[in-house]
Design a protein around this nucleic acid. Structure first.
Length: 553
DNA sequence: CTAGGGTTAG
């Protein structure tokens, strides 16, 4: 019966079960649990609960495992309130939830994005003297990592060590992976060494994380060396390693290398996956070889692989970039006929295409359709339309969309604010841009350097140098890395307006900052000094240029 | 029979 359940033949399992009853063979709790598990996995919660109730009629109480199975069933359906009720029912029946029960609940809440609820359950376990085991810890740690809270994840690792819970290869692999993803390859290597010193040996998951880390921080050549070592020493090659390498080559434009690796996959008899093809298709799109990209989409079908929503979206985006709406929409319709369900990214690409044609109302219509289809637009979706409304000088609608995204519980990104500030600077009132930036600062909203450079440029162009200097100071205070491009943007604009004192001020600041001028920035200043009749400064600068070796022509 | 992990798109 267990086998029937696993194979998905639930009806067979059920009739088998009824036959047992008929022949007076009372099923035991174990048998019930197998059937209930099968039903839960298939999403038939109502039937599963019916069988659980039925157990009592046969004089069998559901046990902790039964309840755990039910809790997991609710969790799989995303019904965490149902899972919480299971816990309450257990307590009513006088059963004690165990580590598995709590781990299921922790996973459920964390995957629903409610990590703090998961952490609360950890507290609850500790207060019940139910110690967390390696799996419960790892579940929490994994969710913390996924949402970027790696420091807290590391603290959990220390807590495990302090309480004598031995982390295993899964725990370490997750940590190494997310440290690499954050670019902290050095720390990842430390954790890796720690793992080895405890005689826990890396498996293919750990090695995948290391390979990703090499791609992140090292050169592609070093990553390739590690990859070659991996594939040399492992008899069973992991297709994910090839996928990562192919993706790296595709992203940096080395599509020839990517195809070579694909050929290696085939000659070694490894089965490529959808991801393999997606990355290859991305690589051809990036080289603007859309015919070839399309050819690979058809080629994957020969392996019995069905192009996914991601496959189609990659190609659709490429057509969108080429401003070929017709081919983009043709692909979208092909998805429909092949019953490939578009994601929110697919619709975002369509919205981008519509925006490029200035069909902004249609873009907003698609946005609304997404909600009707049960898809959640994200920040990129909104940013795309907001940018176009700004460009169309329709700031009212741009801000309306910003309000809408907040009302939909989306946290606006720094990009959102850069777009709005730029919109106000270029197409609206500069004073409104000032108030927006100030109010964002007051509310401690996360901003990037671009917000500052945008408003600084605007004030320079309008000649309000005092304000430009004020924001420049703030930008430095916030410890943003200021580049020569940022100085150039200011100095060029001030030069154009012949604000010579201010030009000299920023130039001196730049030199103090340890940034060397380039030829272009000096030319702009020379022109300004010349036209403004400030010959002293003109010759002083010429002298500096000779010193810096910028007067070679 | 119940709990945790990797790669791709805007």
């Amino acid at each position: 019966m267990s086998r029937f359940c696993k194979l998905g033949f639930l009806d067979v399992a059920q009739s088998f079960f009824c036959t047992m009853l008929k022949f007076g063979l009372p099923p035991d709790t174990y048998t019930y649990n197998i059937l209930i598990h099968g039903l839960c996995v298939a999403g038939s919660m109502e039937e599963a609960i019916e069988f659980a109730n039925d157990m009592e009629k046969n004089g069998l109480g559901p046990d902790v495992v039964t309840f755990n199975i039910l809790a997991k069933g609710f969790h799989l359906l995303g019904l965490m309130s149902g899972a919480g009720n299971v816990l309450k029912n257990m307590l009513l029946k006088g059963l004690h939830p165990d580590q598995v029960t709590y781990t299921i609940l922790i996973c459920g809440h964390c995957q629903a994005g409610n990590i703090d609820e998961g952490l609360k359950l950890r507290e609850e376990m500790l207060s019940l003297h139910l110690p967390l085991n390696c799996i419960s810890y790892t579940a929490l740690l994994s969710s913390l990592c996924k949402s970027g809270r790696v420091v807290e994840a590391l603290n959990l690792l220390y807590e495990m060590e302090a309480t004598g819970v031995r982390p295993d290869v899964v725990t370490y692999s997750i940590l190494i992976h997310s440290l690499c993803k954050q670019g902290e390859v050095q720390k990842a290597i430390m954790v890796y060494r720690d793992m080895i010193s405890k005689r826990i040996f890396p498996n293919s998951f750990t090695q995948t994380s290391i390979l990703l880390g090499m791609c992140q921080r090292r050169t592609i050549k070093e990553a390739r060396m590690y990859f070659d070592a991996l594939t040399r020493s492992n008899s069973t090659d992991c297709v994910v390693w090839y996928n990562i390498m192919i993706d790296q080559y595709a992203k940096c434009g080395k599509i020839g290398e990517a195809v070579d690796l694909y050929k290696q996959i085939v000659t070694k008899g490894i089965t490529p996956s959808t991801v393999t093809f997606n990355s290859l298709i991305y690589g051809f799109c990036k080289q603007r070889k859309l015919d070839e990209a399309r050819w690979w989409l058809d080629a994957m079908k020969l392996y019995g692989l069905i192009p996914s929503a991601i496959t189609y979206t990659i190609l659709m985006n490429a057509f969108c970039e080429e401003r070929n709406m017709k081919s983009m929409l043709a692909l979208f319709h092909e998805m429909e006929t092949k019953a490939v369900v578009p994601t929110h990214v697919t619709y975002t690409v369509i919205i981008k295409g519509l925006c490029r044609q200035w069909k902004l109302q249609e873009a907003v219509q698609i946005l609304n359709d997404m909600y009707a289809k049960g898809l959640r637009p994200d920040q990129v979706t909104y940013n795309t339309i907001i940018q176009s409304f700004c460009k169309a000088r329709n700031l009212e609608n741009a801000f309306r969309l910003h309000t809408e995204m907040l009302a939909r519980d989306l946290v606006a990104t720094p990009v959102t604010y850069n777009l709005l500030i730029n919109g106000l600077c270029v197409y609206g009132e500069l004073t409104d841009a000032d108030s927006l930036l100030i109010s964002l600062q007051d509310r401690n909203v996360n901003l990037t350097k671009v917000a500052y450079t945008t408003i600084i440029k605007a004030h320079c162009a309008k000649g309000d140098v005092q304000r430009a200097i004020f924001y420049f100071g703030q930008m430095m205070e916030k410890r943003f890395e200021i580049s020569i491009r940022d100085y150039s943007a200011v100095i060029n604009r001030l030069s154009k307006r012949s604000l010579l004192t201010e030009v000299k001020f920023f130039f001196l600041m730049m030199l103090c900052d340890g940034i060397y001028p380039d030829h272009q920035i000096c030319e702009a200043m020379l022109n300004a000094f010349h036209e403004g009749g400030d010959l002293q400064s003109y010759f002083q600068l010429l002298g500096k240029m000779i010193k810096f070796g910028l007067l070679l022509d």
